[in-house]
């Protein structure tokens, strides 16, 4: 089965790059499992599947990957949860203090993680986000940024091949 990274990178079947990726099949398989663990976890805690999809789409819009935006927008639409839909766009707020604080933090972790400090964790806590949800949010943002960069890198390789 083709993984999301392979599909969205558009690596041509039969190319030398496809052959190189074949030797990294286990990395791709684990990357797909990681996607499922942060987007569709069995225990979502305080981050519903819809909220996770909205935040993922938002982060992908920041980095500018239209195919990945469409993927996460699709998850969001499928959830049928309109309350968090506004968060899928940078600058969007939904009026729920917890969710808006999480969106702000997802922006920070995507755009300038280097500027994150203890104060940013304090802001999340003040908005009512508990420590387990802070870790869940961080894993979501960290994974999406990993996935975005793997795809961006592979697309560059494809261009040169």
């Amino acid at each position: 089965m083709i993984t999301l990274i392979e599909k969205l990178s558009g690596i041509p079947a039969g190319s030398t790059l496809a052959a190189a990726l074949k030797t990294r099949a286990e990395v791709l398989r684990l990357s797909e499992a990681a996607h499922d663990a942060v987007l569709l976890p069995r225990d979502p805690g305080g981050l519903s599947h819809a909220l996770r999809a909205a935040l993922a789409a938002r982060m992908c819009r920041h980095v500018g990957n239209a195919a990945l935006v469409a993927h996460y927008d699709g998850y969001l639409a499928h959830s049928g949860d309109d309350d968090v839909a506004a968060l899928a766009r940078p600058g969007g707020v939904c009026g729920d203090a917890r969710h808006d604080a999480m969106a702000r933090h997802a922006d920070l972790l995507t755009l300038s993680p280097r500027d994150a400090t203890r104060e940013d964790i304090a802001r999340l806590r003040a908005a009512g986000v508990g420590d387990p949800d802070i870790v869940r949010l961080s894993e979501l943002a960290a994974f999406v940024n990993y996935q975005l960069r793997v795809i961006a890198g592979l697309m560059l390789l494809k261009e040169i091949a």
Binding site: L109, P113, I121, A142, N145, G153
Partner: peptide, 16 residues
């Protein structure tokens, strides 16, 4: 690509 990207992940946990 993979080593840089997995640190895009690790940094976003460890540093934040």
């Amino acid at each position: 690509i993979l080593s840089a990207a997995i640190f895009g992940w690790a940094n976003r946990l460890m540093h934040t």
